[in-house]
Structures are given as structure tokens and as C-alpha cells.
Amino acid sequence: MAFSANSGGGGAPMAEINVTPLVDVMLVLLIIFMITAPLMQHKIRIDLPQATNQPSEQNPVEPVDLAIKEDGSFFWNDQLLSDMELKAQLAVTAQKTPQPELQIRADKNTRYEIVAKVMSDAKNQGMVKIGFVTTPARQ
């Protein structure tokens, strides 16, 4: 609490509030917001699906199931594959028209780097449709 400095007041409290620190803080906040506000307006391009009046495909493409076990082994539609065979299968599947969806089903304890490597390999081979398959938790 501040006390008056004049001798006539006898040490009575001041009735005025010192607003200088408040103005200083507000000016600093204003400058921070002026600098950061334009940075928060970055644009992200999103390709949304387009609605059409065309009938859906008569022969839907069967998705490809890729299971990844905890030890890093790959099963392409329940057939065991090595890493090189997986890349070859991805390249062949990416060339198909229409391209089937790659559905990745990884064990709960599989390291993420293995899944990320598979997704990277699929993208590098030209796969466009990649999905994840999960099982509901048991109650």
C-alpha cells in the first residue's frame, strides 16, 4: 500500500492507483499478439471428396490386409512376407487400376517405427489409399 508524501496528509493512504505498470504490461501483450497473430494463420490444403451423381462401382476392389506382428514379421493377406517381398507386393498393388486400399493391422505391442516404415514404403511405391484396422477393446 502506498502512502502520501505530502506533510499535510499525516501518512494517510493514497487514493490514486499507479497505472504505469499496468500500461506497460498491456503494451507488451499488444506487441506479442501483433507479432504472433499473423503466424497463426497458416493455410493447409485439404482435398475434400467430391459428390457425384454417378452410380458406385459395380465391382468393388477387395482391400489388401497387411498384418504386422510384434516381432516385425509381415503377413500380406495371411501370407508371410519378407521386407523385400513386401516392397515388391506394394509396387505391384500400386500399379493396379483401381488401386485397392492397404489396410494395416498391427499388434498392440508393435513398435511404431515399424509401422511408420511400412507406411513410408507404401507411399514411396505409389500407394494412395492406406487405412488402419483395429479391434474393439474387450469389456
Rank of each mutant, 00 (worst) to 15 (best):
N18H: 00
A15M: 08
P100V: 12
F132L: 13
F74S: 02
M1Q: 09
E62V: 14
M84D: 01
Q58C: 00
K87Q: 15
K108N: 09
Q58W: 07
M119Y: 02
T110S: 06
Q50E: 04
N18W: 06
I104K: 00
R111C: 06
K108T: 14
E85Q: 15
V61A: 14
Q99M: 15
Q50A: 09
M34W: 01
Q103K: 11
Q79W: 07
T110A: 07
Q95Y: 09
Q79R: 10
D24L: 10
A51M: 13
I114G: 00
T134H: 05
S7H: 08
Q54F: 07
Q89W: 03
P63T: 10
L80D: 08
A94D: 04
T135Q: 12
N53L: 13
M119D: 03
V28L: 08
E85T: 03
M14A: 10
N77G: 03
A122F: 02
P49I: 03
M40T: 14
P60V: 05
I35S: 02
D78M: 13
A137K: 10
F33L: 12
Q79M: 13
L27S: 14
R138N: 08
D65A: 05
I130V: 10
G126M: 09
L30V: 12
I46G: 04
F132W: 14
A116G: 06
K129D: 08
K117I: 04
G11S: 14
T52V: 10
D24V: 04
I17H: 10
V25H: 14
V118I: 01
M14K: 15
A106Y: 05
L27H: 05
A116I: 02
E62N: 04
E62I: 06
N77W: 13
Q103G: 05
D78P: 00
